[in-house]
């Protein structure tokens, strides 16, 4: 192999970003507020990545139910860059993440039984609930202008493990739907983010 074909693992840049998908969802979804920051240490062939997020949502479907959740989460993992020599500095990557969330949630609801009647004012809540999961994803990032990247990733999320006390949460911050509202224990997620690079770029 010629020497100029080799790609060494070396520091290329640090990128800091924000998840634009979450910002858009927050803007258009009543009761939802979510923000996620992304940090990346680009070592050319490999990228060490950390995501930090905060999530809160109130789903008001009264008189049937009102669901309220607030929590924080993080993901940490590594990406492998398939095109480390791209002259634009663009990236196609496969990566894995470990995610963990801590949250409180509460549901107020009415329950009706055909024989026993309607039970009004029922409440259940989870204090200090937590969840962990794994993600495998593919993603692309393109440098659109100088030190600014636009990117996305599609994540397959699995291995969800929830610790809750009174009921199974409907939403897991950073993960998506709780396992109670899907037919499987896996889900998909999308992130669109804008990153600003610091360093050699």
């Amino acid at each position: 192999m010629a020497q100029n074909d080799t790609v060494r693992i070396e520091f290329r840049s640090i990128r800091l970003g924000i998840d634009g998908f979450g910002l858009i969802r927050s803007a258009v979804t009543p009761g939802l507020s979510t923000i996620e920051f992304n940090g990346e240490l680009d070592m050319t062939k490999y990228i060490l990545a950390v995501d930090l997020g905060r999530f809160s949502q109130e789903i008001d479907s009264l008189p049937r139910y009102n669901y309220d959740i607030t929590g924080n989460y993080f993901r940490i993992g590594l990406d492998a860059n398939f095109i480390p020599k791209d002259r634009d500095g663009s990236i196609i990557a496969f990566g894995v993440r470990y995610g963990r969330a801590g949250f409180d949630d509460r549901i107020d609801y009415d329950y009706s039984d055909s024989d026993l009647g309607t039970f009004s004012g029922m409440t259940a809540f989870n204090n200090d609930a937590s969840a962990s999961w794994l993600e495998a994803h593919v993603g692309m990032k393109a440098r659109v202008y100088k030190g600014i990247w636009l990117g996305y990733r599609a994540s397959y999320k699995f291995g969800l493990n929830i610790k809750s006390s009174e009921f199974e949460p409907f939403i897991i911050p950073g993960y998506g739907p709780g396992e109670t509202n899907t037919d499987s224990d896996t889900t998909w997620g999308f992130n669109y983010y804008i990153l600003i690079g610091l360093g050699k770029n």
Partner: peptide
Amino acid sequence: RPKLYSRECDV
């Protein structure tokens, strides 16, 4: 335990 399958569903 209450269970919410979907936001369109009853608990």
